[in-house]
């Protein structure tokens, strides 16, 4: 898509540029929002929220865009999906009256639950991401490869190495517990 928007004129408040920007990117924003919208959510509201966020506070968000770092369409897709998630989170945030909560549940637990910390360097960020994509998002190898721009074989080998590390780590941990 041609990134023809004259953003400098747009953030100065040029109405004609804004109108052109809206016409050019409304379809893209709609597509991006559609990917995150839950059933029953008005897509029009999401698109409106995205454009509102872009021009809010004298185009504060739009001013953060840097053409040297990423394409406008890519950036708008990220912004649109993130805005859509925020909007849905706000609308579906559960609210419970404090009067309805039992008194015992309002107390603060004196002893915080200790979490067993794993060494930060156990898995590399890439390994963490790939195993998360496989087990959390149930993504196929080819999907992961496409999303990360790497070869499917690299996905398999990265997963394999990550699982070896995890097995080894937990095996050592169990061995240490038995010897105590």
């Amino acid at each position: 898509m041609a990134e023809a928007a004259n953003l400098e004129a747009l953030i100065r408040g040029n109405k004609a540029e804004w109108d052109g920007f809206v016409r050019r990117y409304a379809g893209l924003i709609l597509s991006a929002a559609r990917g995150t919208a839950r059933p029953g959510t008005e897509l029009e509201d999401i698109v409106q929220e995205v454009f509102t966020r872009l021009c809010k506070d004298d185009f504060r968000l739009l001013k953060t865009y840097d053409a040297a770092r990423a394409g406008l369409s890519t950036w708008l897709t990220i912004v649109a999906r993130s805005t859509a998630r925020d909007l849905q989170r706000r609308r579906q945030a559960p609210t419970t009256s404090i009067d309805l909560v039992p008194e015992g549940m309002l107390g603060v637990t004196a002893e915080p639950q200790e979490k067993l910390r794993l060494p930060d360097v156990l898995l590399s960020p890439r390994q963490k991401l790939i195993v998360t994509m496989i087990y959390e998002r149930d993504m196929e190898v080819t999907e992961i490869a496409t999303a990360l721009g790497i070869d499917p074989q690299t996905v398999r080998s990265t997963h394999h190495k990550a699982m070896l590390k995890l097995r080894e780590h937990f095996a050592n941990e169990e061995k240490n517990e038995k010897t105590k």
Binding site: G35, T132, G149
Partner: peptide, 14 residues
């Protein structure tokens, strides 16, 4: 992981 889809969608533009 809920944001992984953003990367997938951004890569699929065009």
């Amino acid at each position: 992981p809920e944001s992984i889809g953003d990367i997938v969608a951004a890569r699929a533009i065009g």
